[in-house]
């Protein structure tokens, strides 16, 4: 059986909020290392990969592999019944029909319990190759979100170009064009504002801003975001979570001229 307790329901609320517009039905794959999720969007352009390690829970118990097939809009409805600071316990039997979510208020005696019916989801699992990215940009997540939002007003696509000069987000649309260039920046007083660019070779790729803006819904989960690029492979946008856990989004590039 599965029993996993999160100190704050907020984490799961935010994760589900961040991915629910991209993927609808998905398996939460539970085993003794934690809870993992991998799902593609309907158009097979983007891939979500989430890992909540067992250390992110306390306690965490999962005796055997359990796939919880859950509709994210149903899960959202139930998670709305939890306060951010509630303790959240997820429980399921070994071959479950339902998953049980329990919310406990930390400072009152309220205890809420909900069951969500599970679905059989036949999901294709993709092997994601280990990649040494040519460029990794670490920047404040709100800054990335703002760039995506601003450029979306002008165009459907953004080119991301990393050179030793910095990283340039540029777009070209009907009303004109725009570009934002960031250089490495280190602020001792305010490390959340740091911008780090690790570059082994220059990269230039074009991506859909609609998808990038969608990924940015995860901005509330982490102060900074890693944007990893290599020529001719999908972009990785990674939000690090506590206890070595993560929420990753992969986006296939736009190609041709």
């Amino acid at each position: 059986m599965l029993e996993a307790r999160l100190e704050q329901a907020e984490l799961l609320k935010k994760v589900v909020d961040a991915i629910k517009d991209l993927v609808q039905d998905c398996n939460f794959d539970c085993n003794d290392s934690g809870v993992a999720l991998q799902a593609m969007d309907n158009s097979h352009v983007a891939l979500v990969s989430m890992m909540l390690k067992s250390e992110a829970f306390s306690p965490f118990r999962c005796d055997r592999n359990i796939a919880l097939g859950i509709n994210l809009s149903s899960l959202t409805k139930v998670l709305r019944c939890a306060q951010n600071n509630d303790i959240l316990t997820v429980k399921a039997e070994d071959a479950p029909d339902v998953v049980n979510l329990m919310f406990e208020s930390s400072d009152s005696d309220r205890l809420s319990e909900y069951d969500i019916k599970l679905m059989d989801i036949d999901q294709e699992h993709l092997g994601i190759p280990e990649t040494e990215y040519a460029a990794t940009v670490t920047m404040p997540s709100p800054e990335f979100q703002r760039i995506c939002r601003d450029l979306s007003a002008l165009s459907e696509s953004v080119s991301i170009e990393c050179t030793k000069e910095g990283v340039k987000f540029a777009c070209n649309g009907d009303i004109g064009s725009g570009a934002v260039t960031l250089r490495s920046h280190s602020d001792v007083e305010n490390p959340d504002q740091n911008i780090k660019i690790d570059l082994t070779e220059p990269v230039a790729l074009t991506f859909s801003l609609k998808y990038l803006s969608n990924f940015c819904k995860a901005s509330g989960l982490a102060k900074s975001v890693n944007i990893c690029l290599s020529n001719e492979v999908p972009l990785l946008v990674e939000y690090g979570l506590a206890a070595n856990s993560y929420l990753r989004f992969y986006l296939a590039p736009k190609i041709g001229d």
Binding site: V45, L47, H125, L126, P129, I255, G256
Partner: peptide
């Protein structure tokens, strides 16, 4: 114009 590629052309089914 550029066209959108699919994620499945980069990552293979396991």
């Amino acid at each position: 114009a550029r066209h959108q590629t699919n994620i499945t052309s980069y990552f293979c089914p396991r």
